[in-house]
Design a protein around this nucleic acid. Sequence first.
DNA 1: CCTGTTCAGTACCGATCGGTACCGAATACG
DNA 2: CGTATTCGGTACCGATCGGTACTGAACAGG
Lengths: 199, 199
Amino acid sequence: MKKPAVGRPRGFDADEALRRALLVFWEKGYEGAALTDLTDAMGITRTSMYAAFGNKEQLFRKALELYTEGPAAYGERALAEPTARAVATAFLDGAVRTTTGPDSPAGCLGVQGALASGDAGRPIHDALAQWRTAAEERLAQRFQRAVDEHDLPPEAEPRRLARYLMTLANGIAVQAAGGASRSELQEIADMALRHWPPI
Amino acid sequence: MKKPAVGRPRGFDADEALRRALLVFWEKGYEGAALTDLTDAMGITRTSMYAAFGNKEQLFRKALELYTEGPAAYGERALAEPTARAVATAFLDGAVRTTTGPDSPAGCLGVQGALASGDAGRPIHDALAQWRTAAEERLAQRFQRAVDEHDLPPEAEPRRLARYLMTLANGIAVQAAGGASRSELQEIADMALRHWPPI
DNA sequence: CCTGTTCAGTACCGATCGGTACCGAATACG
DNA sequence: CGTATTCGGTACCGATCGGTACTGAACAGG
């Protein structure tokens, strides 16, 4: 970005502030998180937040990026696994771990950030739907590669398998938001993967 | 309820008004649905709504009851199926149909009504988590019966099977909220049930 | 009719929403 | 140093939030 290097330097750590904002959005959702909730958690004032991040919507989008690179990075790691089965296993295991972390809110920001919302939250609602679709797309491409490599049988349909996995991961996120424990959800993931691919 | 039968009679159909309120809550969630959104859709004024339903929270709870007896009645019907396999099939098929109805919002009120919320929505958040847990409990009891009747093998664990089905149904609800079509989700349900029970 | 009761609409309540104008303090550059 | 520039805090903005007091109309029972 731009580095003016003039004027009074910022008095707080923007990365740390964003991390704290992420936790608030994760717990309360986009519309449920009030600016006061956010700035209190971030330890800065409204003006500092607006100067550093633009507005609430941009703050959320920055938090979603951080979420993608941090808690949700299991998705990217899963894609790098050598076999389709390993991809599926890593993906669901990662979903279970991230949605039931002891030091972070239960559930998934990409799901509960704005699953339903008023008119004001529509842009974020759409952005999160797109975020989930993008993950599904990446999985589909990975499974197409597995078919090409004869790692999956030729009759396997990559898009369907990707959608199936995303459905399970989203369901796990909802269960976690409702208070399901990590071990309970791990059992579900194991159970679902007992037959793979489910053709 | 009480029937005073004195005074001016109500000038609107409370059942119809509740049905319309349900659709608003379904689409926008508890906190996302503003009183103005609700009363506009219901075709009544704020005062009439408060006189008839108490307040916003009680209106939501009434709407949830109506949802349970209406769009979500597939759950009760599924429990009455003769075999565990038929129960599971009816449950997931019902979830797909209800979350992708052409004349109702995409998704499930019990999921997106208040998956994450601010402090004001906490009571409803908890009520919906309990609503989902209750459904899981009913399924678990039904599968226990199936084990007792030798409809499921003795090593089947009813609670786990119930949680597995709820996870799929919740995932289907999230997918539907993100725009997935009925046929796409039906494929997922069919795929998941291809191996049943998943032991 | 008259009286009592309930309904429905207006107009408003204090609180909170996201967002901003303003200003003094703090720093970099000349 | 002087000056430009940015930061951070206060105090505020109009809009909207959920909820309600008040009023007059509409009905039931006498």
